[in-house]
Nucleic acid binder design. Structure first.
Lengths: 276, 276
DNA sequence: CAATACCATTGAATCGTTTCAGAAGTTTGC
DNA sequence: GCAAACTTCTGAAACGATTCAATGGTATTG
């Protein structure tokens, strides 16, 4: 059963398209009798007007921007979305939220959706790990579609808003130093992530700008997946005795921090009494 | 500066619309020379094709459904969204997530957006508290737009998926009874919410189906906003002595439970040792 | 050099609505 | 009984892109 159009309805009801349109838009220029008849025919044909066609004719009055995050269950992303929504809202824009859930195909679909529906612009947290597939970003550029990336993508010239990984960690370390810590260790994230590398760099930097010496064993690769970080943390502390424990740990992200806290608790190490 | 159309570009570049279209779609039937020229003109006019127009002509091939939740920072809603996304994805649909953040105006805007952009259908968590403004739902019905509500809305005939409040609480209470609790109290939500009423009803029901007698003072109205619930809980326990304490509390929702836990901790009442 | 193939381009038709000037029919007013 | 006013309805134009048969021009072939 083909989708029926306003013309089908008009024909079957024996009126003009204009009249059907008037009925739909509840204009009072149509007699009760024809109105009812047209409505009946609409039901019969299961008629549903095509929003796209109305939208074209009426002009696209919807002020909206879109965002593609990578993970709906990762509070970091939903917090970003929420913040963006708030600001957008203050400017009269709606925020349309979508998530790729780490699928390249979904990311492509969603960016297409945004441009096809004339969402005014998009914020995209791109999948950069692995071999990046970026033709869809090129497509957006080709049609001049405005978008901002939440991470650098090699081969794409675009506006990027990203975390200043290096400085953030540097600040954290300096804070700890200012509070008297000397045995500080960084539990780093997955080696494949550029965030991990930049944060390690910031960690080193903090030392080179201080009186304290940096040693390679101050950076421990424990990953960011929960079980992995948890296990690695257990191992780390079991492999050394209490006198070698750091007095402070700089974590990679919240999720990892939770895994570490869990491991420390199991080991009977108190936070923040024993370790900050 | 009016938005420029493909026709403006064509005119200025001295070619036909068809040619401009061919350039945009990277068809290889265009000579390099005209191609470059057209691209240059496109830049000059800051031309961006209207997705809506392409979409109309090409047929709307995007399979997507929308959801309007009420609060991005309320995990209950994001969990729903995530679950819906997963199922939708398995059927080849994208999920478009939006949040009204308790604004009637936003809810209206967003539902309009969905129908205007031919998102195939929507799931709406409607604002039912206070004097409901529901004309936008009528509009959706008028154009036969398919939607499902996540709560009953008086005056609207539609499909509703909602929590079975009464039974859920009844189950919870019976569980506590089966574990030997006799002094069970329900800390109820805001009186304006129908959820509150239905849950109280379920609470009473559990008693009427058991050997235990229900007393009015077993239902305490503490609200659901954090500070409110926290304060009311403090008051509740300060007003009576230890022998009158319930052995189990049935809370209204997670947020309220957190506030209650905080109050109990401050009062030195242990959970679950002293109270379940 | 005629026949054929190939290349680049055109422009009218199309997608499904809404709008609005005008027509046709009915009512009112004097 | 005629003009004016009102009510209802019509149908062509418009929104902004894409498509594709037709066209004219150039290159290739025997």
């Amino acid at each position: 059963m083909k989708k029926s159009t306003i013309e089908d309805v008009a024909k079957r009801a024996g009126v003009s398209k204009g009249t059907v349109s008037a009925v739909m838009n509840a204009r009072n220029t149509v007699s009760l009798h024809t109105r009812d008849h047209v409505l009946k025919v609409m039901k019969e044909l299961h008629f549903r007007p095509q929003g796209i066609a109305r939208n074209l004719r009426n002009g696209n009055q919807y002020k909206s921007i879109g965002i593609i995050i990578k993970d709906l269950n990762y509070p970091f992303f939903t917090a970003i979305a929420s913040g963006v929504r708030e600001y957008a809202s203050s400017k009269g824009y709606s925020l349309i939220i979508t998530s790729s859930e780490y699928s390249h195909h979904a990311e492509e679909q969603l960016s297409q959706f945004f441009s096809a529906k004339d969402v005014k612009g998009a914020i995209i947290a791109p999948l950069v790990d692995g071999t990046a597939e970026i033709e869809h970003l090129f497509k957006l550029k080709m049609i001049n579609y405005p978008f901002v990336l939440l991470a650098d993508v090699k081969g794409i010239q675009a506006n990027v808003v990203a975390i200043d990984n290096s400085n953030a960690i540097k600040k954290a370390v300096k804070y700890l130093m200012d509070h008297g810590h000397t045995r500080i260790v960084h539990f780093a994230g997955p080696p494949s992530s550029s965030h991990t590398l930049e944060r390690i760099e910031g960690f080193r930097h903090a030392f080179s700008e201080s009186m304290l010496a940096f040693r390679e064993d101050m950076v421990v690769s424990v990953g960011s997946r929960h079980e992995e970080s948890y296990g690695n943390t257990l191992d780390y502390f079991r492999e050394r005795n209490r006198s070698e424990y750091p007095t402070a740990i700089v974590c990679f992200n919240d999720g990892q921090a939770l895994a570490i806290l869990r491991a420390l608790k199991e080991l009977g190490i108190r936070v923040p009494e024993d370790i900050s």
